[in-house]
Design a protein around this nucleic acid. Structure first.
Lengths: 239, 239
DNA sequence: GAAATAAGTTAGTATGCCCTAACTTTTACC
DNA sequence: GGTAAAAGTTAGGGCATACTAACTTATTTC
């Protein structure tokens, strides 16, 4: 039980609140690399009212974490970007650790990490990473930022955009929806899996894939959540 | 005013906030077994103003977690006790896990656990416990409550109360002060260690101990933070 | 057992973060 | 290029938790 509640800082990090870290993560995810994040999109990702975002965004700008121009969205400052990447590192290392060291199924690591990322110190996260061999990606294939704040920001191709005949290796799947993850698991569409687009039905219809020795068929909504590294054999992207 | 709040439950636990969990832990620690907890003592443990405690205590009573009589302190209800023990289990399992699985030094597990206990799900805590073999005590020797809410509440003797000539096994040390823990570590006064009181200087002076093949001397303030299970050989308690 | 002291409470205020309702600015379209 | 729709903002509240200052109740002391 803590006496001396004083500062209660987490070692190696300014004491950002959980909501603030969530805002920064969301803004990073939206404007990855460059673009500005729209108030409405932040609100949607965080399941908040746009008005709430306006208020918070102003405070974050005052703290120097965001560059904010009224009516024109926000961008992370360098300091904001660093804070976002620290949180992202925490999140993904925790996900990887839960899966690797504690046998968590990949569809449930996200939710647990979502809470732990705000409580774990950098030291804990670094120990976790070391214990499981400094992984470079989380269980869904998302790259883990390094301690010094760099990330692989390669933009991969969505499976929904891969042309018929093209092959690729699944590098990453969206991590938030447990049901979707379980389904992808059943189909064994997992990071590392090599797949080939065999056919696409018209009007955004099902996509048929060759994957290993089996053939499977998925809808475009699902396909859009699967990112692949195209293999240079026959075809490229589809417009 | 407040009634049951819906959303965002942590699996297997009512959605208590971090402050509430801290209050319950503190109240449990104060009145362990029976007694009522005084407002001032709660305030001191949590490093809060007494007025803040009055306010919170009323709300917790409204929620059925405390029995509260104005001007006469509080006691945990059965529901409050269960909640306190869940948090305590989380705390101690996490401490044990950090030490065992991640190589944390015993003087730093407390602080980290203090934050994680509010974010970890019961499932995570149970997986941690299973992974390190269902420990019964944390690294400082404190008993870990079981999932179904029972704890060993044995009251041990403080080393400060052990009579000259008496022997005992260290079962537990206070866990909050890292510096003290490092010092105890240097002296290798650790849970499991067998010690004998060789002499006591008068006027609350230093206590000389035989411990293994060495002889060490500690002050009564430190000794009061070391709990021992007396061995029935020569003498009993003092005072 | 009354006065002094300690302990505890209420009142009023602050902060962080959220909401809805109403208003303003930007954008998109004919 | 003016107007409707979309996007964003401000105004005004609410809730949880904390604080200080002032008041009340309980306990101690002579």
């Amino acid at each position: 039980m803590s006496a001396a509640r004083e500062e209660s800082r987490v070692p190696g990090r300014e004491p950002l609140t959980a909501p603030v870290e969530d805002y920064l993560k969301a803004i990073y995810a939206i404007g990855r690399g460059s673009g500005a994040a729209a108030t409405n999109e932040i609100a949607q990702r965080l399941a908040l009212a746009p008005a709430s975002v306006s208020g918070m965004v102003r405070r974050l700008a005052d703290q120097g974490l965001l560059a904010y121009e009224r009516y024109h969205g926000v961008k992370l400052t360098e300091s904001g970007r660093r804070a976002a990447l620290r949180t992202l590192r925490r999140h993904r290392v925790i996900e990887a650790y839960l899966a690797e060291a504690l046998g968590y199924p990949w569809d449930r690591v996200h939710e647990e990490a979502e809470r732990l990322e705000h409580a774990a110190s950098d030291e804990l996260v670094d120990r976790m990473a070391a214990t499981i061999g400094e992984p470079e990606v989380d269980p869904h294939g998302a790259p883990i930022p390094t301690k010094d704040g760099s990330v692989d920001e390669t933009e991969y191709t969505s499976l929904a955009d891969l042309a018929v005949g093209a092959s690729g290796v699944v590098v990453r799947v969206a991590d938030e929806d447990p049901e979707m993850l379980r389904y992808l698991g059943e189909l064994s569409i997992l990071p590392g899996k090599r797949i080939t687009v065999r056919s696409r039905a018209p009007y955004d219809g099902p996509i048929t894939l060759g994957s290993g020795r089996q053939e499977i068929s998925i809808g475009p909504a699902l396909a859009s959540h699967v990112l692949v590294a195209p293999l240079a054999d026959r075809a490229g992207k589809r417009g």
